[in-house]
Design a protein around this nucleic acid. Structure first.
Length: 426
DNA sequence: ACGCCTTTGAAGCTA
DNA sequence: TAGCTTCAAAGGCGT
C-alpha cells in the first residue's frame, strides 16, 4: 500500500505539504495522522493510474508516478493551490478537488499511457520531453506560453496572487522578476506618512507578497530618504544612491536591477508597457529596434496621491470601474476634506517633489511637455497638436457655463483655481 | 494600438 | 505676472 509522506516544500518557499508516493507494501499507522486517509490515498492513486498488477517494473512505475506528481505540484503552482485551498476549503472538499485536478491533468496528457502499456522507453522519452518543457518554461517565465504549448494547461494555470504577471520560475518558485503594483506610486511608498494610507512595502512589489512566505528580492532600506540633507544624494549610502545607479543600469532600471516604474519608455502609457512587458517577452526585439530616450514621469501632486489612495475604496463602494466617473467622485470628496486632511497630501506631494528633484536633478517637466512640438517632431505631430489645442480651448469655453465640477464652479464664480474654496459645489 | 474621458495641482509657456 | 496649457494616474470605451 502506498503511503503519503508529508514534508515541507521549503525549496519552494511555501509551507505546504509535499505529498509523494512511496513504495507499495510499506503500510503503517502513520497514515491515520496524515491529512489524507488511507482510503483517500487509494482513491487518489486509482484516479492517477489504473495500473495493471502485471506491470513488469512496478517500482519504476511507482517512481514515475512520484516524479510526475511532484512535477505537477512544483511546476504548476499546485503547492500554492493547495496552500490556499486548505485554508479556504474544508479538507475533504479540497481533497476531492485536488483528486479531480490530478485526474484531469493525467488524462489530458496521457502521461500514463506508456506506463500502462509497459513501454518504459517511450515513457522515459516523455520524461525527458517534460523536463525540456519545464526548462523551457523556466527560461521564458511566461505563463502565457502554457496555453499554446499545452492545450490542456489553461485548466491548470491558476492565477498566481503573489506575482502580478505570473513571472515565476517553476523550478525554484522564486520570484525572478517583479512588477510595480498599480496601486502604488514609485515614490509614494518611500514616504512613510501613514501606515493606513501608504503601504510601506516596496513599490515594485504587490502588497500580498510582503505578507506571504514567497521568496523575493531584498527590499532596500529606504527609511532615511527624507532625512537626507540638502543635496543628500551624494551622501547616500551606496545601496541607496539609485539615481546614479539607474543611469548606469540603463532605462527603467532600479539599482536593484528591477525596472524602475518612474522611468518608462516614451511610447505608450506606462501601464500598457507593464502589461505587455512580461506577457509577451518575445516582442521585446521589436521594441529594441526603436531605442528611445526613457521618460521620467512627473511627481504626483497632492490630489493624485489622494486619488491613488482612495480609488480602490471608491471602486468598492460605488462598484464603478470607469476612471472618469471615479475621478469625478474623488474630486468632490477631495473638496469635502478638511484643510488638515488635505494638508497631509500637500505635505506628501511636497516631499515627493523634493525626492524627485534629488533623484533626477536635471529633469524638468518640460522634458515631457508638448512632445509633439519638441525639436525633431514631424509636421503631422505638430498638426495633431494644433487640433488637440483647439479642442481643448473649445472645451474650456464650454466649461465656464457648466458648474459640474469644483474647477468649473470656480471658473463660473470667478474664484482663483489655486487657492479659493469652491463653496457652491460643496 | 492609441486617444479620450475626468479630476486637481505643479510647472512650463506666452502675451 | 496673469492666464493658459500640459502632464501626472486610472481603466473603460471608441476608433
Amino acid at each position: 500500500m502506498p503511503q503519503l509522506s508529508s514534508g515541507g516544500g521549503d525549496d519552494l518557499g511555501a509551507n505546504d505539504e509535499m505529498i509523494s508516493f512511496k513504495d507499495e507494501g510499506d503500510q503503517d499507522e502513520k497514515i491515520q495522522e496524515n491529512a489524507f486517509t488511507e482510503r483517500d490515498l487509494a482513491d487518489l492513486k486509482s484516479s492517477l493510474v489504473n495500473e495493471s498488477e502485471t506491470n513488469q517494473s512496478p517500482n519504476a512505475a511507482v517512481g514515475t508516478r512520484e516524479i510526475i506528481l511532484m512535477r505537477c505540484w512544483q511546476g504548476r503552482k499546485w503547492l500554492l493551490l493547495r496552500g490556499l485551498g486548505t485554508k479556504l476549503l474544508s479538507p475533504g472538499l479540497f481533497k476531492v478537488i485536488l483528486r479531480l485536478l490530478i485526474y484531469v491533468y493525467c488524462h489530458c496528457f496521457g502521461h500514463f499511457q506508456a506506463v500502462r502499456r509497459g513501454q518504459q522507453n517511450e515513457h522515459r522519452g516523455y520524461q525527458e520531453k517534460h523536463r525540456e518543457h519545464l526548462d523551457g518554461v523556466s527560461k521564458h517565465q511566461d505563463g502565457g506560453m502554457y496555453k499554446t504549448a499545452y492545450p490542456g494547461y489553461p485548466f491548470l494555470m491558476l492565477p498566481d496572487p503573489y506575482i502580478p504577471s505570473g513571472s515565476v520560475s517553476p523550478s525554484s518558485n522564486k520570484v525572478s522578476v517583479v512588477q510595480q503594483s498599480h496601486g502604488m506610486h514609485p515614490l509614494t511608498s518611500l514616504l512613510p506618512y501613514s501606515n493606513d494610507h501608504f503601504n510601506p512595502s516596496p513599490p515594485h512589489l504587490p502588497t500580498d507578497m510582503s505578507q506571504k512566505g514567497i521568496h523575493r528580492p531584498q527590499s532596500q532600506d529606504i527609511s532615511g530618504f527624507y532625512s537626507l540633507p540638502q543635496g543628500g544624494v551624494g551622501q547616500m549610502p551606496p545601496s541607496m544612491g539609485w539615481f546614479s545607479h539607474s543611469l548606469m543600469l540603463g532605462p527603467g532600471m532600479h539599482s536593484t536591477g528591477i525596472p524602475h516604474p518612474a522611468i518608462v519608455p516614451p511610447s505608450g502609457k506606462q501601464d500598457h508597457h507593464d502589461r505587455n512587458m512580461y506577457a509577451k517577452p518575445h516582442q521585446e526585439p521589436k521594441r529594441e529596434k526603436e531605442p528611445k530616450k526613457p521618460v521620467i514621469k512627473k511627481p504626483l501632486n497632492a490630489f493624485m496621491l489622494y486619488m491613488k489612495e482612495m480609488r480602490a475604496k471608491v471602486i468598492a463602494e460605488c462598484t464603478l470601474k470607469e476612471s472618469a466617473a471615479i475621478n469625478q467622485i474623488l474630486g468632490r470628496r477631495w473638496h469635502a476634506l478638511t484643510r488638515e486632511e488635505q494638508a497631509k497630501y500637500y505635505e506628501l506631494a511636497r516631499k515627493e517633489r523634493q525626492l524627485h528633484m534629488q533623484l533626477y536633478p536635471s529633469w524638468s517637466a518640460r522634458d515631457n511637455y508638448e512632445a509633439g512640438l519638441r525639436e525633431g517632431a514631424g509636421e503631422k505631430n505638430k498638426a495633431d497638436w494644433g487640433k488637440k489645442k483647439r479642442r481643448k480651448r473649445e472645451k474650456q469655453q464650454d466649461s465656464t457655463t457648466d458648474p459640474g465640477s469644483p474647477k468649473k464652479c470656480r471658473a463660473r464664480f470667478g474664484l482663483n483655481q489655486q487657492t479659493d474654496w469652491c463653496g457652491p459645489c460643496r
